[in-house]
Simulated scan of single mutants.
Amino acid sequence: MLIILAFIIIFHIVSAALLFTSTIDNAWWVGEGFSADVWRVCPNNTNCTEIGEGYEGYATMQAVQATMILSTILCCISFLIFLLQLFRLKQGERFVLTSIIQLMSCLCVMIGASIYTDRRQDIHRGNSWLYHPLSEGSYGYSFILAWVAFSFTFVSGLMYLILRKRK
């Protein structure tokens, strides 16, 4: 049982690290000499512009920002609740709240990455959007980490439900 708990703790910490990295780092959309994320656009390596109200699609980017921040916060809260529940609750009642909060984190990261994917695809359908001048590029590693974090938080949430029944 201790090995399972250690594995779950490590898995949860990795999930949180993936969420932090994907939310903060500037590599959601990359190309030759430029990068962009949910916070700023860098047409070259030295000149970065914060995404503000002047950008087309600003409300959409705010939705992505909010869901990614919320997913990171919920993941950290679920880890703290996990630690509290580990020592406070009797067997059979453990980790239900932790699982619910972790699955909410999973849902938030899925919504944020899905919105970003949909808006990014508008460029290729001919619709205008935030990074239109930088349309020639590809998804960066932060975007991929967001989807990996989605799967990690989903699996983690399910593991907490399964672990609830273990003795």
Rank of each mutant, 00 (worst) to 15 (best):
L134Y: 14
S151Y: 13
S142D: 07
M61P: 01
S138M: 04
Y55F: 15
E50R: 12
R125Y: 09
M159H: 07
P43I: 01
G31N: 11
I69C: 05
L107S: 07
Q65I: 13
E56S: 12
A27I: 02
S15L: 01
V30Y: 06
N44M: 08
R88F: 09
L19N: 04
E53F: 10
A27Y: 12
A113F: 09
G33P: 01
L103V: 06
R164G: 01
L84R: 03
T49Y: 13
E53S: 12
I101C: 00
K90C: 05
N44D: 15
S151D: 05
Q91T: 04
K165P: 00
W28E: 11
G137R: 08
L86F: 12
T23Q: 03
A16Q: 00
I3M: 10
R166F: 15
I81K: 07
T49R: 13
G112T: 10
F154N: 03
W29Q: 04
S15T: 15
G52H: 12
F20C: 05
V41R: 08
T60C: 04
G126P: 03
W147F: 13
V148E: 11
D118Y: 14
I115S: 03
S114V: 02
G52I: 02
S135P: 04
N127Y: 15
Y131C: 04
G92L: 13
I4F: 12
F154G: 08
E53V: 04
E32R: 06
E50S: 05
S142R: 02
L86S: 00
I3E: 09
